[in-house]
Design a binder for these strands. Sequence first.
DNA 1: ACCTGAACACCGTTCAAGT
DNA 2: ACCTGAACACCGTTCAAGT
Lengths: 203, 203
Amino acid sequence: MFNYCTVYNSAMSTSRGPGQRAGLDRDQVLKAARGLLDSGGVEALSMRAVARALGVAPNALYSYLADKDELLDAVLDDILGEVKAPTPSQIAREPLEAVRSIMLASYEVLIAHPGLMSAYFDRQGARGVQAQRLGVVTLDALARAGLDQDQAREALRVLIVNTMGFAAMSARPNPSQPGIISTAELRRNFRNSLTWLLQGISS
Amino acid sequence: MFNYCTVYNSAMSTSRGPGQRAGLDRDQVLKAARGLLDSGGVEALSMRAVARALGVAPNALYSYLADKDELLDAVLDDILGEVKAPTPSQIAREPLEAVRSIMLASYEVLIAHPGLMSAYFDRQGARGVQAQRLGVVTLDALARAGLDQDQAREALRVLIVNTMGFAAMSARPNPSQPGIISTAELRRNFRNSLTWLLQGISS
DNA sequence: ACCTGAACACCGTTCAAGT
DNA sequence: ACCTGAACACCGTTCAAGT
């Protein structure tokens, strides 16, 4: 609610007139957004805050992004870029374990960013290149486990809902709150859910 | 973005001075909130809009609610009140089918309210009396299916994440959008996910 | 106790203008 | 094409005051 601890960036003091360029690009905008997300959570991630961090006017961002939704989508995809996919040989040898490891890795990456998930469900999850990368290898692994194309697509959706749902639940700003389940317990719960799901899917 | 079609309620024109009471209660506030949610989705559900609908000043609501979070929690619990729980005899005879029917009914009720779900994951789901009611009967059914207390609690959490996740995905303001999965397909997918989960849980 | 007026500190987005 | 100034139409919440 009270937030005056703005991190002053490069071109903060040097005020430009209209026409003077700041020399931004899409990547710098995303980096600034991720910085705000990591330090202050989703509620700190506003268009105006990003602009403030970059030392530009709020509307300057619209040269690089259509709207805030696009910013959120891009930031999520950026985060998913940290998830390491299993190697082709790992997928070939143990496809179901490959699926599990993708989901576990995604979970760990996602819970590092409190509150980001909740915004993504009404957009039906991630749709960026990183999300597609993970989707492709998971579908491949599911196919090798014996599922046909339709089954694999449905199973992938269930796994994503489960992973993002648990990530959204686990990712809390302050872990010590009354009536709140601990991250450790939720992580255990998530692992068991994966076992149950993979068992149900492959039977 | 443009929204001037305010539904004028009872005491809209009669302006009160400070001290004059509007005769509100918590239930009227919730009813007004549900009205806004049903007609305009979550983005239409703001404190100020609720106050407008009731013909009171925005801050008048704080006599009945601590903040917006409490309003959202109360509205969700109100919605969950529509979910009919299976009878004790149904639970005793087919516990796993009872669990499935609770989740299916919850899903159907939840997807009728686009976008509401996404706000609830970072609060670890619902916690109201209606949510507790459904939780108790589901835990009972899971126990009768052979799960011990810890297993049942974990299984319940997975089922809730799955149900709310799919509900959040399915509940879209306008179903005809490019690259958006249809509600019918997601409903099929959700039913299959329930079968897989219950299979995995009970094995 | 319940309500209003006024204000605070924000939002996302648009439009016109400057170079 | 990239940026600013100014504005529009909102938010949630608080504080002091009235009856």
